[in-house]
């Protein structure tokens, strides 16, 4: 890209351009992340802010323009739904910022902060969806993006059903939509479709009516969705809350701490969990490590119970939401 055999005047102009770019460089922006140093000298990967993996076609055009002009013509799709543009020279950061501003967009974050939340399609058009994951994800990003934790990263995600494509078990704070069914016994005609639909065998026919074993139900709502005459109905809807999960070098499965949490309570819980983390964690430990060290019950009592949500505080009630596989160590809290 360097201009070969530049005239002295052009060379001077290029130098001046470089200088003015340096002057415009905002080091605070640089520190808050979003620009990630590459192995190549002076080159950075620009991480774009894509909450829930949603970007407009206009934004996509700008991302590709940035990649063509300042990168090497490729973008990278990250595991947490971001678009990254690799091979950007730090001198071009101000120009990149300007282009992003033009479509009301910005870079993401890294370091010890609340990261951009991730989310599945949710109930908007996915037939399995039980909650508005995209709507909540957008709002959580608006309210909490980049909040410093004082310790380490803080990841939040939303899954619209128990299939949990967005791996709420591996997040510092994960929210999974859930629905509790109830049967209108007078309306039920005993067709057994709900029993057939239940993958967890939580329903069995007794005296021509489906009877539910709560300890097996994982609140997916399949029985409600299949019932041809709407005799199986939603009793309660909300979010299952998981805390303390992580992937990385030392993966940890999250703990289920509350259920049927409302949209508004989601924001309250994020605030409380963040405050508890800030106050109680040591050094660069993640929320899950702090909970392991100080005890799950203490975390629940201090951060969750005061909010008035429906707390899950025993292993029996957690059982329907995990299978206790052999990979993760569920050390007793």
């Amino acid at each position: 890209m360097a201009v070969e055999e530049a005239t002295p005047l052009e060379g001077l102009k290029a130098e001046l351009r470089k200088e003015s770019r340096r002057a415009h460089l905002n080091f605070a922006d640089l520190k808050s992340g979003g620009y990630i140093k590459q192995t190549q000298k002076d080159l950075f990967t620009v991480r774009l802010r894509c909450p829930g993996g949603r970007v407009t076609t206009e934004q996509m055009r700008v991302a590709s323009e940035i990649a063509e002009r300042y990168g090497r013509g490729t973008v990278h799709l990250t595991v947490r739904q971001s678009i990254e543009v690799p091979y950007v020279h730090h001198a071009d950061f101000p120009a990149v910022q300007e282009m992003l501003k033009g479509v009301d967009w910005s870079i993401a974050t890294c370091g010890p902060r609340v990261r951009v939340p991730t989310a599945c399609a949710g109930c908007e058009y996915n037939p399995n969806g039980l909650g508005d994951t995209q709507g909540l994800c957008r709002e959580v990003d608006r309210r909490f993006f980049g909040t410093p934790t004082g310790h380490h990263k803080f990841k939040i995600s939303f899954s619209g059903c128990p299939i949990d494509c967005f791996r709420t078990r591996e997040m510092d704070l994960g929210f999974q939509a859930m629905v509790g069914p109830r049967l209108d016994e007078a309306a039920c005609n005993g067709c057994t479709l709900c029993v057939q639909a239940c993958e967890d065998k939580a329903l069995v026919m007794q005296a021509k009516l489906p009877v539910r074993d709560d300890s097996k139900c994982n609140n997916c709502g399949d029985c409600i969705k299949v019932c041809p005459i709407d005799a199986m109905l939603p009793r309660q809807r909300g979010w299952l809350v998981r805390v303390g999960g992580r992937h990385g070098k030392h993966p940890l499965f999250a703990y289920e701490v509350a259920r049927y949490v409302s949209d508004e309570q989601v924001f309250v819980l994020i605030e409380r969990a963040l405050a508890w983390y800030r106050e109680n964690a040591e050094g660069r430990e993640r929320l899950g490590a702090a909970i392991q060290r100080l005890g799950l019950n203490r975390f629940i009592d201090e951060a969750i119970r005061p909010t008035g949500v429906e707390v899950i505080d025993n292993e029996a009630d957690r059982r329907p939401y995990w299978t206790g596989g052999n990979f993760y160590d569920r050390a007793a809290a």
Partner: peptide, 8 residues
Amino acid sequence: RNVPRSVK
């Protein structure tokens, strides 16, 4: 599991 639900 699938067909009755889709029919509905």
